[in-house]
């Protein structure tokens, strides 16, 4: 299978982080990106679960890439992904029950996260095991970092905390009754709501566009 134009390891790894970042450049996997990034902890859990499923499905697909029949390909991908998502879901239920309650149906929704099926189709079904693993790591890492970044921004703005730890001075309850200035950070609850998700992601994408234009 060794051909001259097979992708190199390092560029593949780096592509996932910026140039082909699943969220920021390819606009894939939007649902979890928006839904579970109201705090960093859920974002991290979601990112790592997705990365795990991505890695496993890339390995399996890459191993059986020469045996795949074209018209049963997608069915095979879906079956593989669904299996590993079930495993990830069970793991969370068994070892991180609080997280599993919080993320609820968004964990099984990893099945229809376009990133995974897209990588299976575009990378794993054409490349060897090594490149597929590197690709999954790069993409999974890129996805997790982006999710955490969004989660951090939203969590700081909506509660003044990161990882549940207060970093901006908390405001005392009923401060407005004393008639003085606010004695701490006024939480902007809107950022924990759907509005915050859409607007934050929109502005970040705008920023990325701007940076890309500057460097181009």
């Amino acid at each position: 299978m060794a051909n001259s134009d097979s992708p190199k390891a390092l560029p593949t790894l780096l592509a996932g982080l910026w140039k082909e970042n699943p969220v920021l450049a390819l606009l894939l996997g939007m649902c979890p990106t928006l839904a579970v990034t109201s705090d960093v902890k859920s974002a991290l859990t979601m990112g790592l679960s997705t990365a795990f499923v991505l890695l496993c499905s890339n390995i399996v697909v890459s191993l059986m890439r020469n045996l795949l029949k074209p018209h049963l390909r997608i069915l095979m991908f879906t079956l593989t992904i669904a299996t590993f998502v079930t495993i990830a879901d069970l793991y969370l239920k068994a070892f991180l029950p609080a997280m599993s309650d919080k993320l609820g149906p968004y964990i099984p929704l990893i099945i229809v996260n376009c990133i995974i099926i897209c990588r299976a189709e575009a990378c794993a079904s054409k490349n060897g095991l090594f490149i597929s693993i590197i690709d999954a790591i790069g993409m999974g890492f890129g996805f997790t970092i982006t999710l955490c970044m969004l989660g951090a921004i939203r969590e700081i703005l909506s509660t003044g905390a990161v990882f549940g730890k207060q970093i901006l001075p908390a405001i005392s309850e009923n401060w407005y009754l004393t008639g003085g200035m606010p004695d701490g950070f006024i939480p902007m609850f809107a950022f924990a709501l759907p509005v915050g998700a859409f607007v934050t992601l929109g502005l970040i994408l705008g920023l990325v566009n701007m940076i890309n234009k500057k460097t181009a």
């Binding site: 029949k69 049963l72 069915l75 079956l79 299996t83 079930t86 495993i87």
Partner: peptide, 17 residues
């Protein structure tokens, strides 16, 4: 012939789960 891979992997995944 067409679907042996699918059947075999469904079986393996089932066992795994």
């Amino acid at each position: 012939k067409e679907s042996w891979l699918l059947l075999v992997s469904a079986f393996i995944f089932g066992l795994l789960l």
